[in-house]
Amino acid sequence: MMRADLALIYDWVAEGAHVLDLACGDGVLLDTLAQHKKVTGYGLEIDPDGITACVARGVSVIEHNLDDGLGCFQDNSYDLVIMTQALQALRRPDKMLDEMLRVANEGIITFPNFAYWRHRIHLGLRGYMPVSKSLPHAWYDTPNIHLSTFNDFEHLCQEKGLVIVDRAVGVGNQRGHWSSRLWPNLFGEIAIFRVRRR
């Protein structure tokens, strides 16, 4: 079974699209998209086990550190760039967003929503850095160096003049409850955005 955010993204990807999947992990999304939607493209990954898993599936994967940017990919060379659960671990998430929308006209981004109510309880009431299913690390060993919220990301998109085509939330392993759709910044554990250049 695919992660909830991946299942949602699956529905958003057009048949036959040429896709770049940043931090593609074991390649399950690209594999599924290739088999059922004739999607082509490449995954970028830095984890050796993830890369081997992709190769075993027959998913095209390129060892690449996202902090090095996407300079090796030409403008508008893809239909879509996907980045799941990696934005918060990048040195400059804002620059990556620029890069994604240079390489393709559309981007799909998922990240843990720091303003999720459980996170707020951790920090606001108990006074500890939040630890949850979507943020499983301790403050000292977390790879997540740029945490943000639904509101933060929307604000960044506004600043950059990007169009938010779709927005969704994931909670645990399911799609969000009605409450999280109504108040995503409070009840959405995982933020899912689909953005385009204006």
């Binding site: 040429h18 490449y42 890369i51 998913v59 994967v61 390129i62 060892e63």
Partner: peptide
């Protein structure tokens, strides 16, 4: 090797690369 890989992706060929 990366030079080769970049040319292959530009050409749209299936390629995997590991360092």
């Amino acid at each position: 090797s990366r030079e080769l890989v970049d040319a292959l992706t530009q050409a749209g060929k299936p390629v995997s690369y590991a360092n």
